[in-house]
């Protein structure tokens, strides 16, 4: 374990050095990342100029909703920093046969493939997310209970674990398909469902969709449960969702590991 942590630190240091070598580009990446986030915040402000809340009696008025957005920013920032850059490289590695050199190394292939490259500029959004969270929570009419403050970081980790599981399964699909340039698109589109409170998925189509995105592809648990814990009262139903999120996070990482190993077993090298 210590060895892996050391290698992880070495990768992180190397990527930081690389980012700092091209400082202007790094700064520009931070700025564009913040620009994307600001644009979304402007969109939400525009929406709140038309309505007092999102979904009738849903409880997602302006400040709680911005706490929701902040939670999404923090979780996505962690995932974008740590896992996505490596996962997006996998597509080309499978197609060109570069994956071979990873498989012959005396290290766990999943570790190497999912954590060898980091994107530190994505942390900018996370930092703003924390600031937005503090701003939103300070404006709540009722401060969140202490237990919610303790549970919140745990649930953030669970959200990251669920997304990590999803990335690994997409990576497995890449190995099986030979090429999957849609990997990043699929990631963007599927996480799009988690960008808004689950309450918006209502009605004859929304209800079943909400069920699928909660229990089949548990993307709605990722942001909704931590954000709901900090922004809304902890009722009986909330405790059920918190427990479910913790269990799903463990299952997600476990199942993705099995699927990834199975995909590697079926890998056929593209190189000679």
């Amino acid at each position: 374990m210590g060895r892996y942590f050391k290698i992880f630190s070495t990768f992180a240091r190397a990527c930081l050095v690389r980012d700092m070598t091209f400082r202007a580009n790094f700064l520009l990446e931070c700025l564009t990342s913040l620009g994307w986030m600001s644009m979304n915040l402007a969109f939400y402000l525009l929406i709140f100029s038309f309505t007092p809340e999102i979904g009738r009696n849903s409880g997602w008025s302006r400040e709680p909703f911005f706490a929701f957005v902040a939670t999404g920013l923090i979780i996505n920032s962690i995932v974008q920093t740590l896992f996505m850059p490596s996962a997006s490289e996998l597509t080309e590695m499978v197609r060109t046969g570069g994956l071979d050199s990873v498989l012959v190394r005396p290290l766990d292939a999943q570790f190497l493939l999912s954590m060898h490259r980091f994107d530190f500029s994505s942390m900018a959004n996370g930092i703003v997310g924390v600031a937005l969270l503090v701003w939103s929570v300070s404006r709540f009419s009722v401060a969140p209970p202490l237990i919610a403050c303790f549970l919140y970081p745990v649930l953030i980790v669970c959200g990251v674990a669920i997304l990590y599981g999803l990335i690994i399964m997409l990576a497995a699909a890449t190995i099986l398909m030979g090429r999957n340039q849609s990997l990043y698109d699929f990631w963007f589109y599927i996480t799009n469902f988690s960008r808004y409170p689950a309450e918006i998925y209502a009605g004859p189509w929304g209800g079943p969709l909400r069920m699928v995105c909660t229990f089949v592809i548990p993307i709605l648990l990722v942001v909704n449960v931590p954000a709901g814990t900090i922004a809304r009262p902890l009722s009986g139903n909330a405790w059920g969702m918190i427990s479910l999120t913790c269990v799903v996070a463990i299952i997600s990482v476990g199942v993705s590991r099995i699927v990834f190993q199975a995909a590697l077993a079926r890998y056929r090298s593209a190189s000679s």
């Binding site: 929406i47 309505t51 007092p52 999102i54 979904g55 009738r56 799009n192 808004y196 998925y201 929304g206």
Partner: peptide
């Protein structure tokens, strides 16, 4: 998601 979002906005407003 956009369809559901705007439906929720119209319902609430």
């Amino acid at each position: 998601t956009q369809v559901f979002l705007w439906t929720a906005v119209f319902n609430a407003s």
